[in-house]
């Protein structure tokens, strides 16, 4: 590993969960136990997942660092590598290198309320920090999760959504876009920014974490501002195309900021400093 930055860990796919059309979660375990001992990460970091013979693809680690012995990733089948990953079976071996990037400053959030807002396939990067916070539940005041997807079918982590719904210490609001509801849908109907506005969570002592498609993010920030959230208290993640993951291949930078090294976690205050190149 020291000699060759590009050498992935070998990981065995322990379990595959079908989340939504085209979306799967892999539970991965280190093939070599020695690798596992060396490995540590924090919520918000990402890695390069590879299918040998096909290539590498960048996505977040979706499981919390508080759960040891495995990592999980959730991906949507869209490109060459995710197609190949999707074709993998339980027991298959894939490559993983990482962790890369910065982290959600969970320690700094101690004593505050947390508001998670996610849309579609952007729940996975947030799931890591949600579970991280829930595993250290006593550190935080209110925990609110607002999660929306296009249709009921597109909601990911359906089992965990049920868990969160049942927990007394979590307030979960799920929503689907108008027209995306099923006859038995009991959640909200409407786009995420609208629902945030309707729920109107308090900004007092609260950190907001927002992940989702660009259009959702674009319309959610003003709603949060209206609710009194300052730019320093809203966190989000950026995703740009990457190859190396550590500031060399030259793709992911937004102005002088490298998403792979300075990100992927940014506050809105930091985003406002960046040129429009993401």
């Amino acid at each position: 590993m020291m000699d060759n930055l590009y050498m992935p860990y070998l990981m065995r796919i322990e379990r595959i969960t079908y989340e939504a059309p085209g979306v799967k979660t892999f539970m991965l375990k280190f093939v070599n136990e020695a690798d596992e001992d060396k490995f540590s990460y924090k919520a918000g970091q990402f890695g390069e997942y590879s299918v040998y013979g096909v290539g590498e693809s960048t996505f977040c680690i979706a499981s919390p660092p508080t759960r040891k012995g495995y990592i999980e990733c959730t991906f949507r089948q869209t490109g060459k590598v995710t197609n190949a990953l999707s074709g993998c079976e339980e027991g298959s071996i894939i490559g993983f290198r990482g962790p890369y990037g910065n982290v959600f400053p969970i320690e700094e959030w101690k004593g505050k309320s947390l508001l998670f807002i996610a849309g579609g396939i952007a729940l996975p990067p947030m799931r890591c920090v949600i579970w991280n916070a829930l595993d250290l539940r006593e550190n935080f005041k209110d925990v609110t999760i607002i999660y929306g997807a296009r249709t009921v079918k597109d909601l990911v982590y359906k089992d965990e959504l049920k868990d969160w719904e049942l927990r007394k210490d979590v307030k979960l609001i799920t929503t689907v876009d108008p027209g995306g509801e099923s006859p038995d849908w009991k959640g909200e109907i409407g786009f995420v920014p609208t629902i945030v506005e309707k729920i109107a969570p308090s900004s007092k002592d609260t950190i907001a974490i927002v992940c989702g498609p660009p259009v959702m993010i674009k319309y959610t920030f003003p709603v949060l501002a209206k609710l009194g959230f300052t730019d320093e208290n809203i966190y989000t993640t950026l995703e740009n195309r990457m190859k190396c993951g550590f500031g060399k291949c030259g793709r992911c930078n937004v102005g002088k900021v490298y998403v792979c090294k300075d990100g992927p976690v940014f506050t809105v205050a930091q985003l406002k400093e960046l040129p429009d190149e993401y």
């Binding site: 590879s50 096909v54 190859k243 060399k248 030259g250 793709r251």
Partner: peptide
């Protein structure tokens, strides 16, 4: 220094190249 990382596969064997 911009580079790409690609896999070259030949049957069961192959390499990753920069």
């Amino acid at each position: 220094a911009c580079f790409d990382i690609e896999d070259e596969a030949h049957g069961k064997n192959g390499s990753r190249v920069r």
